[in-house]
Design a protein around this nucleic acid. Structure first.
Length: 150
DNA sequence: GCCAACGTTGGC
DNA sequence: GCCAACGTTGGC
């Protein structure tokens, strides 16, 4: 099993929304590095749900990949801001995953806490200026984050 | 609201 | 293929 971190602005879609929906397709990722990480996710992988662009930012919950290699439906939707005129149904450009709610943390593991525990080499999300919205977490770091979350 | 980081676009 | 201009992300 692999571990990941994915960001979302809670004003747009937060852990509370996932708790209500139980599952969601993680659509709208339009960065190739992030997409490549999405492509390598497997069912069963654990994903930290990170709340960005909010005070304080941090890890707010846990989710699990239930289905991988899904063509992001918004790339074919004219009305979507994520519509991609160059993508075709025969060879979709953007893949994503379906995730399932696992847990809403009673206490946010804040970016400040993460910075105090991990170096940018251990955890990409604490690197200053980091904008990647999907990133891998090494298992050792993931276990430590899970301890901080309890 | 500001601004640093950095990905993307487009002229050449 | 280079690189300046531009747009977006996201912390503060």
């Amino acid at each position: 099993m692999n571990y990941w971190l994915m960001k979302s602005e809670p004003d747009v879609y937060g852990i509370g929304d996932l708790k209500r929906d139980r599952q969601t397709i993680w659509d709208g990722v339009r960065n190739y590095q992030a997409r490549n990480f999405l492509r390598s996710m497997q069912p069963g992988d654990l994903v930290f749900f990170y709340h960005s662009n909010v005070v304080p930012p941090g890890i707010a919950g846990l989710m699990k990949v239930v289905e991988s290699n899904i063509a992001d439906p918004t790339q074919f939707d004219f009305a979507s801001r994520y519509y991609d005129v160059k993508s075709t149904k025969e060879s979709p450009r953007w893949q994503t995953v379906c995730v399932e709610f696992v847990e809403e943390l009673s206490t946010l593991v804040s970016l400040d806490t993460l910075r105090s525990q991990f170096s940018p080499d251990d955890l990409l999300v604490v690197r200053p200026g980091n904008r990647l919205s999907v990133m891998p977490i090494n298992p050792e770091v993931a276990q430590k984050i899970l301890v901080l979350a309890r």
